[in-house]
Design a binder for these strands. Structure first.
Length: 573
DNA sequence: ATCGTAGGCGCC
DNA sequence: AAAGGGCGCCTACGAT
């Protein structure tokens, strides 16, 4: 602490850290000395520095956040090199060595992979000092990346110092984005979101295991004692569908082409057997209804059944891996079914005794984000309404639902059907917003990368198999256009959502509130029951603060529905 | 046998 | 109302 004060490190100043338990940690400040500290509880020490100095912590990747989350230590401001790299370069899960090479314009084709480590680790190493994490050829030393950085506190301090160099270069590159201040801000908020992800992974989502067992039992019957019993159960479930058929060839319900053939036998002809397509054939033959019901049960049996419970739920918490941004527009991802829990399972998500959930979801987030990023005055005016589609419909002189479909279609790239007419109305009445979307789509069709308002690069793919096939080329271009159009909105919404989420995390902590689920536009916060009202206020205030910090246009109104509930299923749909 | 892909469905 | 963007996870199947 004295060391930090001696060198004038204060709130918000960069302080790089590399830490491993129970060895210790290394610290480094820009253009200054490094500090190596041996201690058996580095996370606690980081927490103490946070309270005393409140620096901006700099680290390479999830190593430090995972350590902090495991020890329940809270820090706020940070800069995560791998997270900033995703923002700069697009893509997903880039290895540290590649991110470093990219930052330094080094060739990446000769980079050794983990498997080849022994074989190639010494490449380009001649004359190099193994105590220098950077090789003579400029690449990071693989031995350091794969754990060598933690071999002693001296190395940790060196490793921290090198991360500062990476950050320096990242900031210089972010300065080249169209809106540098916003891009820097995104790097910071996305880094904090990764910190939140580390905590979500450790803490998990509260689950009432008995209720979960009840739901699974209702859908698929009692837990089978062995594989033979499981097979009998499957046959019994299959019979509820197959019993509706007359004699004929055997049908495997798990094989889509079998199902299609089965449906043809009862005069239902469909190009595929997706539920939304079968929906309109419900009345045609009882087997359709039975099949749709079977699929729901099958989903529970295979994905959210006893095995899922055994694998992912422990001590009343559902735990999965959380990542701060996907490979496309930058939404959060989660495994273990956290992002696609069927509605039937949601009664099992229950606050612990003495606690409640404060649940909040953003209303009509995508059109509001479109208003904010495009600056369309008319659409901005529409955000003043709690139901944005109402004023849009009035202006277009169409039904509300038609307006809604048209707006969503414009953002997703759908141009056909009922909404086509309303779409032309949108173009006339909201030319700035529609022009914004069209420019993104045009870039995508041309194969150019697009950027979110926060500065995230969204990579466009190339399809080299087109090769003169005009039809295929057209399809690929159209697909890229839809993707780019959507990515600018979905990605901006994800950036806004994450600002909101990290503010709730930071401001809710003093009330004992913890974010336990992030679902693209929805937050679930676990809080002591007697703090419910205060936490509700925190969530609402955080929304206003997020809008103020994030929105390119101050007049856009963002709304959220906030409620206090005990089970997730208590939320009004 | 092991892998990647496609069809499917869950959620937003 | 129409069927568009994202993710994770399941099964079956065809390639290696």
């Amino acid at each position: 602490m004295t060391w930090l004060r001696e060198h004038g490190v204060g709130p918000g100043d960069d302080l790089a850290v590399a830490a491993a338990a129970p060895t210790g940690l290394g610290l480094a400040i820009p253009a200054g000395p490094v500090m190596a500290l041996a201690c058996d509880d580095p996370a606690v020490l980081i927490g103490e520095i946070e309270v005393a100095i409140a620096p901006r912590w700099i680290w390479w990747d999830r190593t430090v956040p995972d350590l902090l989350a495991a020890h329940d230590v809270m820090v706020n401001r940070c800069w995560d090199v791998t997270t900033a790299h995703r923002l700069l370069d697009g893509g997903w899960r880039t290895p540290l060595a590649v991110a470093w090479a990219w930052l330094h314009d080094l060739p990446t084709d000769s980079l050794p992979t983990m498997g080849q480590l022994d074989l190639l680790a010494d490449r380009g190493d001649e004359g190099g000092d193994p105590e220098d994490p950077v090789r003579p050829d400029g690449h990071l030393r693989p031995e350091w990346i794969s754990g060598g950085w933690a071999a002693g506190t001296g190395r940790m301090a060196t490793w921290a110092a090198v991360s500062l160099r990476a950050v320096e270069r990242q900031r210089a590159l972010l300065d080249r984005r169209p809106d540098p201040a916003r891009a820097h801000s995104t790097a910071r908020s996305e880094s904090a979101a990764e910190l939140l992800c580390a905590e979500l992974s450790v803490a998990g989502l509260p689950i009432d295991t008995d209720e979960a067992l009840r739901i699974i039992g209702d859908a698929v019957g009692p837990r089978p004692a062995d594989e033979a019993q499981a097979e009998i159960d499957r046959r019994r479930r299959d019979a509820t569908v197959l019993g509706h058929l007359g004699p004929g060839p055997p049908v495997d319900l798990r094989n889509p082409s079998d199902v299609k053939a089965m449906l043809r036998r009862v005069a239902v002809d469909v190009p595929d057997t997706r539920a939304w397509r079968l929906e309109r054939h419900r009345g045609d033959h009882p087997v359709v209804e039975a099949l749709l019901h079977w699929r729901k049960a099958e989903r529970i049996a295979t994905t959210y059944g006893y095995r899922w419970l055994d694998e992912h739920v422990r001590d009343g918490r559902l735990r999965g891996e959380w990542s701060g941004s996907d490979g496309a527009a930058g939404r959060m991802t989660a495994s273990a079914g956290l992002h696609n829990l069927p509605a039937e399972m949601r009664p099992a998500v229950a606050a612990e005794p003495g606690h409640v959930f404060v649940r909040a979801d953003l209303g009509q987030i995508e059109p509001r984000v479109l208003a904010a990023v495009s600056g369309d005055e008319s659409l901005i005016a529409a955000t003043a309404s709690a139901d944005l589609y109402r004023p849009v419909a009035d202006r277009l002189r169409v039904e509300r639902d038609v307006a809604k479909v048209a707006v969503l279609g414009a953002m997703y790239g759908s141009t056909t059907g009922e909404s086509a007419h309303a779409l032309r109305g949108l173009e006339r009445n909201y030319p700035v917003a529609m022009g914004f979307l069209e420019r993104a789509a045009e870039a995508g069709r041309a194969g150019d990368d697009v950027y979110t308002v926060g500065g995230r690069r969204v990579r466009m793919w190339v399809d080299d198999s087109i090769d003169g096939d005009i039809d295929r080329a057209r399809r690929v271009a159209a697909s890229r256009g839809r993707y780019a159009r959507n990515a600018t909105i979905q990605g901006a919404a994800a950036e806004f959502f994450k600002v909101w989420a990290i503010l709730v995390r930071a401001r809710g902590a003093e009330h004992g509130a913890r974010v336990v689920l992030c679902l693209h536009d929805e937050l679930l916060v676990h809080a002591p029951a007697d703090a419910a009202e205060r936490v509700t206020g925190v969530v609402s205030d955080a929304l206003a603060e997020a809008a103020h910090r994030w929105s390119p246009h101050p007049d856009v109104r963002f709304v959220a529905d906030v409620s206090v509930i005990e089970r997730w299923s208590d939320a009004k749909g």
